[in-house]
Write a protein that binds this DNA or RNA. Sequence first.
DNA 1: ACAAAAGTGTTGAGAGTACACCCATGC
DNA 2: GCATGGGTGTACTCTCAACACTTTTGT
Lengths: 233, 233
Amino acid sequence: MRFTYEYPRPAVTVDVVLFTMRAEDLAVLLVKRKGPPFKGAWALPGGFVNENEPLVRAALRELEEETGVGGVAVEQLGAFGDPGRDPRGHTVSVAYVGFVVAEAHTVVAGDDAAQAAWIPLQRIARRRRARVRLAFDHASIIALARERLRERLGDPVSRATALELVPPRFTLTELQRVYEAVLGRTLDTRAFRTRLRSHWIVEAVATGRVRAGAKRTRRAQLYRWRRRRTSER
Amino acid sequence: MRFTYEYPRPAVTVDVVLFTMRAEDLAVLLVKRKGPPFKGAWALPGGFVNENEPLVRAALRELEEETGVGGVAVEQLGAFGDPGRDPRGHTVSVAYVGFVVAEAHTVVAGDDAAQAAWIPLQRIARRRRARVRLAFDHASIIALARERLRERLGDPVSRATALELVPPRFTLTELQRVYEAVLGRTLDTRAFRTRLRSHWIVEAVATGRVRAGAKRTRRAQLYRWRRRRTSER
DNA sequence: ACAAAAGTGTTGAGAGTACACCCATGC
DNA sequence: GCATGGGTGTACTCTCAACACTTTTGT
């Protein structure tokens, strides 16, 4: 089947930058391309938008098709449309960002992908010495997405709760590790907790869980996100 | 001439939300549509992206073609791609925002437009009683653009200088009026000036201009934006 | 003299940052 | 008893918000 139009049309694609915590580091969900262009290179999950399909839905569909990861919350990052970003021709891609708890999702490579995996950000083309080379302009999209994530966490701690940063029940140390990984610097524990308390965004639940693997230690208090952001003080 | 593709492609368009100050109020640059759909309705200047044309360039080209306004700085707002936003078929639009000094530009309706003009935001569909009805989803794009503008001005006053908020030489009162219009509330003069001074973003030039029309008053000091944002203190 | 807009400082509250030690647990 | 990570409070700085009166000019 063929589709003809009166004027040339750039192709419209969507891409998803999905972050997670992986062994104390930030990682992105990537797929290894099966076919050209960039065959064998890693790329963001994504693909063409169907006729009459909302952009977000296309993004989530492609994400699930290629990686098996579904039911995540994403927000739009922006549109990338420089000619030359896709050797096949002019393509405009709308990118989305999200953050999930890796353990809550199973990654399964779809038919289009040779492989799907969480790749630590450090292995991605930092100047030279790149271990993982990325297709298209995906390296710069990821860089921008990371920037966005930093902003989200940086200021009013509020919006962060929309992202699935930690499991439903978490310890404050776990949360702090996520913040540290995203912001790229260590935080002071006392300051971090004071801030959480003053913004009133987490609340304690039951006590007594220990981080898996670490046994000779005190049991950490469990917390969960508070729902509303009710009464301002 | 016809263009055929293997898969259906949504059309890609760009739209520009260009703000200015107009008689103490914010106004947007709109064009009156000459042809269907939404013939006779007001719409954002914009149109189809050419093959191999960068998105921003397309936006600026369309802006100039339809309104005669050129040489402005814009930043990307986001992509809007809900099916149904364009009755002709699935269209993905990438929107850009900017802010200019109206007096510095001459508005001339292009061939595609019946008219081009600065329309005060207040005349745009505020719930009922709309005087100006907008085509497509342009009302919500404008709302989002306004939000973005507010953010830009809100926090570090720095970034605001990228937008052409005021003429090259301006009085602090003029600048304050712009901030007030964008933020939608009055500001305290002393606080406003203290903030500017502490952020070190404007500098005095020659003295002695009076606002046109107001004669029986003290002469205001002229300022200009500082270039760099040099030495942090 | 008065109308009209320009200009000018201080105080208090809240947010962020920096900083060091004791506690509970399992081996 | 020691290694491991959990947990706690205070002081300083900076930024923002709120507050009213004097100055210059033209009529």
